[in-house]
């Protein structure tokens, strides 16, 4: 079944609910990681990297805008309201992405983990039955190419460098690993998403592909791949204080006057 546009999906409440839930996952993931990335502005380890990394954070926020706009077309609020006004427990980003920034190694590992996941998710969305999403996924994946390249380079080189850098990278991997399954929580409508062809992939398939890729690179770099793997089922619902604080910061000006034009 191909759903060309809003009209094609709006008449089917079950599909609509599932689609919206997925769009919130996509939008919130990119907004939160983009926000965290932007906190590095002025503070990256090199001036040149500061500039390069900022474009990545802008891309992520830009992608969030794209998804929020799809939600607005489906009858949800306008993008700014969706980004600023929803309460923390209504957010659908993976918990891994909301954690406060650590050191540069933590940032690189988190982005590399997320990029690897996002690439697989986008790959599936490139054949989505919901055409506006499919078209967006193709564009977004093209922009993500540079992100993948960039974080992959950093990931490999910091580990290969050995010494303190490798030590910090291994510590970041260990710290972030238990959060990774949160990425694979596709929400309560995962079955409907797959059946309708909106997200034609299962969480299990994504997890396997991710682990194959990530473990492959880690073994190549002689880094131990952690064996434990937690349950993914509530990874987008059990948010932490870090998200509440992030949203509070983000809305500090907005909430002075929600009705005002800024």
């Amino acid at each position: 079944m191909v759903m060309e546009n809003v009209q094609a999906v709006i008449s089917n409440p079950e599909v609509l609910t599932a689609l919206k839930d997925l769009l919130y996952q996509l939008a919130d993931d990119d907004l939160v990681i983009g926000h965290r990335a932007s906190e590095w502005l002025g503070l990256a380890p090199e001036i040149e990297e500061d500039v390069a990394f900022s474009s990545i954070s802008q891309d992520e926020v830009g992608h969030a805008v794209f998804y929020y706009n799809l939600l607005a077309e489906l009858g949800e609020d306008v993008a700014d309201k969706l980004a600023f006004e929803r309460s923390p427990h209504a957010r659908r980003n993976a918990v891994m992405l909301e954690r406060e920034n650590g050191d540069w190694a933590h940032t690189i590992v988190r982005h590399w983990f997320y990029d690897s996941f996002e690439d697989l998710r986008l790959q599936a969305l490139e054949t989505s039955a919901y055409v506006p999403l499919r078209q967006g996924a193709v564009k977004i994946r093209r922009e993500e190419f540079y992100h993948n390249l960039h974080h992959d380079l950093w990931f490999r080189r910091l580990i290969r460098a050995g010494g303190e850098a490798r030590h910090r990278m291994e510590a970041a991997i260990a710290q972030l690993w238990s959060d990774v399954p949160s990425l694979f929580d596709l929400g309560p409508h995962a079955d409907m998403l797959r059946e309708s062809g909106i997200l034609p992939v299962t969480s299990v398939e994504l997890q396997k592909a991710w682990r194959d890729k990530v473990a492959g690179v880690m073994r190549e770099l002689d880094v131990q791949v952690p064996t434990q793997w937690c349950d993914a089922s509530d990874g987008r619902r059990r948010h932490t204080d870090a998200l509440s604080e992030l949203l509070q910061t983000m809305g500090e000006v907005y909430f002075i006057d929600k009705a005002a034009v800024w």
Partner: peptide, 15 residues
């Protein structure tokens, strides 16, 4: 043969 390297798919007129 890697045109994606230069991909800028969304209108970034904010800059």
């Amino acid at each position: 043969d890697v045109p994606e390297f230069f991909a800028n798919e969304f209108d970034k007129d904010y800059r």
